[in-house]
Structure formats: C-alpha cells, structure tokens
Simulated scan of single mutants.
Amino acid sequence: MQLEHIGVIGYGEVGKTFASGLRDKPGVQSVGAWDLNFIDPARQADEQAHAARAGAVAQASMRALCQASTLVISAVTASNTLRVAEEAAPHLRPGTLFLDLNSASPGTKQRCAALVDAAGAHYVEAGVMTSVPPYGIRVPMLLGGERAAALAEALAAWGLDTKAVSERLGVASAIKMSRSVMIKGLEALVIESYATARAYGVEDHVLPTLQETFPSIDWSRQGAYFFSRVVQHGQRRAEEMREAANTVREAGFAPTMAAAIAEKQQWVADQAKAGVFDGLDKQATWQDYADRLLAQRSKD
C-alpha cells in the first residue's frame, strides 16, 4: 500500500492535526495540504506560514494536491463532504487512496465513493468516534470500504487507532452518525436544561438530582465541557447533525430529534459568532456561559 505522499484537504483543526502528525511516519516522503484559506487574501499568509512550520506543503489548488498525493485525506465540514469529492475526483491519480474523515450520512459517503472509484482511485470512509483533541491522530476511527482493512492495518502500524468494520460502505458512517445523535443531543439537552435552570435560579436543585440519578458523571464539570465545545465548534456540529438527520431519514424514520439538535447547535454557533461568549477563558464554568445567554436574552 503506497502511502508515501499524503495530501490533506481542509486545513482546519483536524487537517492541521493530521498534517503535522503524519509527516514523520515511516515511509512518508511528503505531506501537502489544500484549503481555500490558502488563496484568501485575508488569511493566506497566516495559513501558509502555519503549514510551513508544520512541514506541510501548501498546495496551490485541489488539482495540485491530488496529483502530488498517493493518500488523500478529506477533513472538511460535513456540508462540504460531497463537494470536495466532486472537486477532487477528476484530479486523483489512479490507485490513490481517498480517506474521508468527514461526518456525513451513509448515503452521502456512498455518493462520494462512486465519484472517487469512477476516477480509478479507492474510497475509504472513516467514522471519527470522538473529538480529535486530545487524541490527535490517535483518535479512534472506524473504517469502511473494500480497502478499509488494508488501510486500517497500515495506519495502525503508524500508531493510529483504526479498525475496519465492514467492506460495505455506509456502515462506519451509520455507527458514527447514530452515536452523534446521542452525544450532540446530550450537549443540546444540557445547554437548554442548564440555561433554563439558571434563568429560574433552580440549578442548585436540578444538578443534585442528576448527580443522584447518574452518579458516575460530574454534571457541573461535564456541563462546562459541553458548553465550551458547542461554543467553539457549534457550526461544525450543526452541519454534522444535519447529516445525522439525513442518516435517520435514510433509515426510514422522521429525524425529529436530530433536526432539533442541529437547530440548537446552530443557535449556539450563531450566538458565538455574534460575540456573546467573547472573553470567556478555558476555565469558564457552565454558569459563565449560561449567564452570557441570559444577558443576551434580555437584549433581544
């Protein structure tokens, strides 16, 4: 399996992690990256400088990245999953492995695979099973597709936590998306429940009852973590949950909960974009986040 030249599409948090984490692996001769920010006058200099420090070549285009790579890793937002496959497929070299890390529905992944495979490359889907930080490139991943087992073995030899779950495309994504309904749903529930309790001044009654029912969870600490992650990544989570809703729909059910979770995640993302949480540091409590929402409510 030829993995000498790695190309990362999407140079955000995940893309940066994989570009820097894979550059020194045995047999890797080059790591490149492509992101629209590389040609954005406002961000070009900073992003290209970051890539240079990380030992990654900031490619000039999608075409340049694909033609220079034997392993292409797609690490973009959920809403861009299919578009990236559409743009990359015509430029992929025959035999290239295309590893799709994006949080998308089984149907979306299958459409991506059809494009990549038609170009003579080999599509492998990945279900990234938790937040990349603090695991880095060792984040648990489930792989699916005809080349999943071989790629999982190769990546595991590099120290990655990869497991092939099926040769059938869509299985890894179904696992990931079903889990996301629960995890992102918990985030949305906590934010709505805690902010409401804070508004009524009853949090000192509510949280102890949660602690009694689920004693293994530190509900105050977990609440702070959930708030912080949604504030930081709510847009990405909202897009993921729209794909989760597609997954539910593809299974033949109405995505009542998944759609509502996407809406709540998007609402928090919009609040963050509006500056509601500006100035809060990493040590902020869930009450700090809730108080910002309550203060904004009084202004609306």
Rank of each mutant, 00 (worst) to 15 (best):
A104K: 04
V276H: 01
P106Q: 07
L189W: 08
A54Y: 00
G55F: 02
R147Q: 14
K184Q: 06
K184A: 12
A174K: 13
G136F: 03
Q110V: 03
Y194I: 07
A51L: 02
K163P: 06
E187I: 09
A118S: 14
H122V: 11
G144L: 05
Q296A: 14
A126L: 12
E13M: 11
A126G: 12
Q44M: 12
V8L: 02
E192K: 02
Q232K: 13
Q265G: 11
P106G: 08
M62T: 00
A238D: 01
R229N: 14
D278T: 10
W286F: 13
R63Y: 09
A260I: 05
V190W: 11
W286I: 11
A224V: 07
S103N: 10
F214V: 15
N37Y: 11
A58Q: 05
Y123V: 06
G145S: 04
P134R: 07
V124I: 08
Y135L: 13
A88V: 00
M177G: 06
P133E: 11
S166D: 10
G145L: 03
L160H: 09
D300Y: 08
E125I: 03
Y225T: 14
V14I: 15
V84E: 07
A45D: 15
A272C: 04
K264T: 15
L97M: 09
R93H: 03
V14G: 12
A238F: 06
A244N: 01
E212F: 07
E86V: 03
G12E: 01
E263N: 06
L82D: 06
A52N: 12
Y11N: 03
K282Q: 12
M1N: 07
A172Q: 14
R249T: 15
Q296V: 01
I191W: 07
G120S: 03
A254Q: 14
R147C: 09
E125A: 04
S30M: 08
T77M: 12
A52D: 11
L280F: 04
S131V: 13
Y123K: 06
C66A: 09
A244V: 15
K25Y: 12
E167D: 15
N102S: 08
A244I: 05
A272D: 06
V128R: 07
T81D: 08
M129L: 14
V171H: 14
T130Q: 13
L3K: 00
W267C: 08
V181W: 11
P94Q: 02
H205S: 10
A238K: 04
A119W: 05
D117Y: 03
Q287E: 14
I9Q: 10
A269H: 05
K264R: 15
C66N: 02
A290N: 00
A54F: 10
A172W: 07
T96L: 02
D161W: 14
W267N: 10
I39S: 14
I217G: 09
